[in-house]
Computed example of a mutant assay.
Amino acid sequence: MSSSTTSSAAAYPKPPYSAPPPAGYPTRSDAGGQNGAPVPVETKSKGDGFWKGCCAALCCCCMLDACF
């Protein structure tokens, strides 16, 4: 019964090498600014383009329904 309770580390050993992360993926060396301090992030509003497009599509649908 003890043979069925093996650890997953023994069943799946760590590979001898590790692949580099994908391009643009943050690594530990560039995770922070000076002295490992987090870099402040600025966010910008994208506007209301989605809602304008959505309303235009609904208006177009209603006009086509009324004309045909």
Rank of each mutant, 00 (worst) to 15 (best):
A10I: 11
S29K: 11
P20H: 05
T43W: 11
S3L: 15
Y12W: 08
A57G: 12
S8G: 07
P40R: 01
C55P: 00
S18P: 00
P40H: 02
C55W: 09
P22F: 05
P16R: 08
M63G: 06
C55F: 12
P15T: 06
P38M: 01
A10P: 00
A19P: 02
L58W: 11
A57F: 12
C54N: 11
F50A: 06
S18C: 05
P13V: 04
Y25C: 06
A9W: 02
E42S: 10
A31H: 02
M63D: 09
M63V: 15
G53F: 06
T43N: 10
C60S: 15
A10T: 13
M1W: 14
A19D: 01
A23S: 09
A23T: 02
Q34P: 08
G36P: 06
W51D: 05
S2H: 13
Y12Q: 10
P26V: 00
M1K: 14
A23F: 07
P15I: 00
C59Q: 07
G24C: 03
C61E: 08
T27F: 04
F68V: 11
S18A: 10
A19T: 09
S4C: 14
G36C: 00
P21K: 11
P22W: 03
K46Y: 07
C55S: 11
M63W: 14
F50M: 04
F68P: 00
C55Y: 08
T6M: 12
Y25S: 09
P15R: 02
A19H: 07
R28G: 09
C59W: 06
P40I: 01
P15G: 04
P15H: 03
G53D: 00
P26H: 03
C60Q: 08
G33Y: 03
K52V: 03
S18N: 10
C59E: 05
G32C: 02
Y12P: 00
V39W: 01
A31P: 03
P15Q: 04
G47V: 00
A11L: 07
D48L: 08
K46H: 09
Y25G: 00
C60R: 03
S4P: 02
A19Q: 09
S2N: 14
L58V: 14
N35I: 01
M1S: 15
G33N: 02
A57W: 11
F50C: 03
E42I: 06
C54D: 10
T6H: 09
T43L: 10
K46F: 07
T5S: 14
P40Q: 00
C55V: 14
G49M: 06
P15W: 02
G32H: 04
Q34G: 06
A9E: 01
S7I: 05
G32V: 02
P22M: 04
A23N: 07
D48K: 09
S2R: 14
Q34R: 11
T5E: 13
D30F: 01
G24S: 04
C54T: 10
F68K: 06
K52P: 03
V39D: 06
S7E: 03
A10Y: 10
G49R: 07
D48S: 13
Y25W: 14
P38K: 04
K52N: 08
K52F: 11
F68I: 09
T27G: 08
C59A: 15
P26I: 01
A19G: 01
V41K: 10
S4M: 15
S8F: 13
S2Y: 13
Q34K: 09
P13F: 01
P21N: 11
K44V: 06
R28L: 12
A66H: 14
